[in-house]
Design a protein around this nucleic acid. Structure first.
Lengths: 187, 187
DNA sequence: GTCTATAATACGATAGAC
DNA sequence: GTCTATCGTATTATAGAC
């Protein structure tokens, strides 16, 4: 591992987060996570009593990551239009992963909604963090329908990520992101 | 059942198709399907040797359904712009299911891509059927970038379905469909 | 074609030694 | 905190009677 000083709990979260994204939650077993880190399943159960428990920790971990990124962007991009541009840039930056595994937030929400009804609210918060931040930027640009605009931007981003993944075509992502940027600047 | 004269193979396909949509493929067991139809698991295995086999049959079943619908629309809507409108209308018609379970094509592609690499081509064909049909309509309207337009329309539709599902909000679907219709008519 | 019974495996979870 | 060993269960799949 690149960060050997992490304690196991953090290492488990890091590894499980990646595996849940790449393989999906249902297709990832405790054995998979344990093998990845070369620790025992019993150790895993010491840190997380159940798989449900681990999932909750992963979602919370992702929520914290998103909050952290948004806080950085808030500092780095004072202009609201640059905030919107930065959101789209995220898709470009994550191109390689999106092509192979889709959007981590969209795919998790899709998967959980079909069986984990209690966790839908928590995973939806990943969308809401971005949406509220985007809504604020639209509002600062003087738009009255800023909430609808934020939802529309998320819609286009999710659609772009899904189609890019299905067709495994990075050109598709680039083309859709250009359309989104044009839409933002034409508003 | 509403159609008691169907033989078991067809009844299995109908039931499994619905369960794979509602619960997801990985969360649907042979026992689930058998219980739904009140038949034995052994009977199920007589008609489909493996779960993989059943999945292939379901995808083929869906492909045939889409082909059938497109053939009907081809007859009913000679004007290309009406073809595009009809595609969007499909989302409105399926509102209740989309709110609860998402888009059947999008969610299946998302789920399969994460572990069933061999079946990605087959499930992608569900997108391609719609895309080629839409591309033809755009072409008839005189657009040179008809392929890009077809992909963009699919992108917006998938994004709308996903957000509608995540927020469980039918108003969101309606709003996004209106935006899509406006985009089509403004082209 | 449909059933019951059962094999074989994988998984989530627990107990107890260290 | 980490390990090994094991339990209980669910799941896919097969065998054989009817």
């Amino acid at each position: 591992m690149s960060r050997p000083n992490l304690d196991n709990r953090e290492r488990i979260i890091t590894a499980a987060n990646r595996l849940f994204y790449i393989k999906g939650y249902n297709q990832t077993s405790f054995a998979d996570v344990a093998n990845e880190l070369e620790i025992s399943k019993g150790n895993l159960h010491y840190h997380f009593r159940s798989k449900d428990d681990l999932l909750k920790a992963i979602i919370s971990f992702r929520i914290d990551m998103v909050k952290g990124n948004l806080a950085k962007w808030e500092q780095a991009y004072p202009e609201p239009i640059d905030k919107l541009r930065r959101f789209v840039q995220m898709l470009i930056n994550e191109e390689a992963d999106i092509v192979r595994y889709g959007c981590p937030i969209g795919s998790l929400n899709m998967e959980l909604g079909k069986f984990q009804l209690e966790l839908r609210d928590l995973s939806r918060e990943l969308f809401e963090l971005f949406r509220r931040w985007l809504e604020k930027a639209f509002k600062q640009l003087g738009h009255k329908d800023s909430k609808a605009l934020s939802l529309h931007l998320l819609t286009m981003a999710q659609g772009a990520a899904l189609l890019t993944y299905v067709y495994a075509d990075k050109k598709l992502l680039k083309a859709e992101c250009n359309k989104i940027i044009n839409w933002i600047e034409a508003l």
